[in-house]
Structure formats: structure tokens, C-alpha cells
Design a protein around this nucleic acid. Sequence first.
DNA 1: GCCAACGTTGGC
DNA 2: GCCAACGTTGGC
Length: 152
Amino acid sequence: MKYWLMKSEPDVFSIDQLKKDKTTPWEGVRNYQARNFMQKDMQVGDLVLFYHSNATPPGVAGLAKVSKLATPDKLQFDKKSEYFDPKATKEKPIWYCVDVEFVEKFKELVSLQDLRDNEKLSDMLVLAKGSRLSIQPVDKKHFDIVKKMGGL
DNA sequence: GCCAACGTTGGC
DNA sequence: GCCAACGTTGGC
């Protein structure tokens, strides 16, 4: 069982939306490192810190879990989508996404500042300077602390 | 809206 | 393979 942090802009897709939808394909990732995590490392049941980026304030909003192994991201074939990739073919897809299922929303958002203020989290990837990766592995010890900070 | 940091592209 | 130019992310 592994642990992850996945970023989403709440204006685009929030944890409340995920709660409503129950599950969603994590489409639109167009970064190779992030794709590789989904395609190669994620297993069904892995737990996810659902992070709101570009928010006021930014931070971890709750928990989700991987509910389906990676399959080709269908938006890469959709000419009307902003995520269309002309180099991708059905035979040789380039982009993959897992399905993510709602688990629980935190009682209160654990803000980026809250994470920074906790010295036990000082080596968390999301706190590293210039860290833009939208999907990151998280140590179990960090996951447990953040979960507790979120009141779960 | 600004801009630092990082990723990608493409000419050579 | 190098690297300048460009594009994107995401905090502020």
C-alpha cells in the first residue's frame, strides 16, 4: 500500500465535486513523471491526500483512494479537448490515468502554511521549493500526520 | 497579475 | 546532446 498527494484546482475539480461524483478518472495529467506514478506505481486501494492548488488558501482538503488501475486517458484522442495529443494513437496511447474515489473530507482544510509549520513534515515533497509536480508519493509517516491534522 | 521554478520544444 | 526560447504551475 502506497500513499500519494494529488493536486487539483478546486475551481476546476474540488473535493466536494469528487464527493458528489464518488469516483472520477484523473484525466488531463500531461507530465511524464506524474503519468509514470499513475501508470507504474499506483495500486487499487492506495490512499491519496487530495490537495487544492491555486486556492485561497492552498492545502490538503481530504482523502481519496485509487479505485482503478491506470487506463488510457481518453482526452488525448479528443480533438475538442485542451488535452488532445496529436501524437497519441489508440494503439499507442501516451497518457494514462487512474480512477480516484472519494474517501473523506477533512473537518478543516490543512493549509500549506499548516504543513510548513509542522517540523515533522519538513521533508515532505510538496513543501520543497519549486515543487510543481501534480502527483507525488507521500511517506506513510507524513500521511498519518496530515490525516491527524485534518481531524481524521 | 506577477514571477520563480521547472518542463518541453526545436534549431543547431 | 546542448541550450535558448517558450510554456506551465502555483504561491503570493
